[in-house]
Simulated assay, not measured.
Amino acid sequence: MKFKPKSASLVYYVSDIARTEAFYNKTLGLELERMEGAEPYWLQGALEGGLELIFFQQEGVRGNTPAIIFTVHDGGIDDVVADLAASGVTIVTPVSEAPGGWSADFLDPDGFGLGLWQSDDLPRSLR
């Protein structure tokens, strides 16, 4: 299976989700929606160009956030991770549960963290 990303999200880990919500909604005028399923909640919104911004309240380490997360649209996140590993890519976090689906994290050649996310409506493997 050859994975070709079609969309991506920028994910930030922030120390104060309410402060982040006020800044992006009121100061920058972005419409971030409160999403349930993570404590206390997470924020999600898209720019007009299509890039999605997501904010979780949790400790973030510089260099690990923001993170680019590629969406697996057709299912098969297990297959994509297996193919990446077979290509020599370092898998940091294997496929695991995430809000609304499944996720996995890996490194690019310079050690930058990248991730995958797939809706739980889709099959984890197509093989």
Rank of each mutant, 00 (worst) to 15 (best):
P5G: 06
K6S: 10
A8Q: 10
L10M: 14
Y12G: 00
V14S: 04
S15V: 05
S15T: 14
D16E: 02
A18G: 04
R19S: 14
Y24G: 00
N25C: 14
T27C: 09
G29A: 14
E31W: 01
L32K: 02
E33Y: 01
R34F: 02
M35H: 10
E36H: 01
E36S: 08
G37C: 07
G37M: 03
E39S: 14
P40T: 04
L43S: 03
L43V: 05
G45P: 05
G45Y: 06
L47E: 08
L47V: 04
E48N: 09
G49V: 07
G49P: 00
G50C: 05
L51Q: 06
L51P: 00
F55W: 09
Q57E: 15
E59D: 09
G60T: 14
G63T: 09
A67Q: 15
I69R: 02
I69K: 06
T71G: 00
V72G: 09
H73R: 10
D74V: 02
G75K: 07
G76K: 04
G76N: 11
I77S: 02
D79E: 10
V80H: 03
V81Q: 08
V81K: 04
A82R: 15
L84K: 09
T90N: 04
V92G: 01
A98M: 10
W102L: 04
S103T: 15
F106M: 07
F106T: 09
F106D: 08
D108E: 14
D108F: 13
D110C: 11
F112S: 13
G115A: 15
G115N: 06
G115F: 09
D121Y: 10
D121Q: 15
S125L: 05
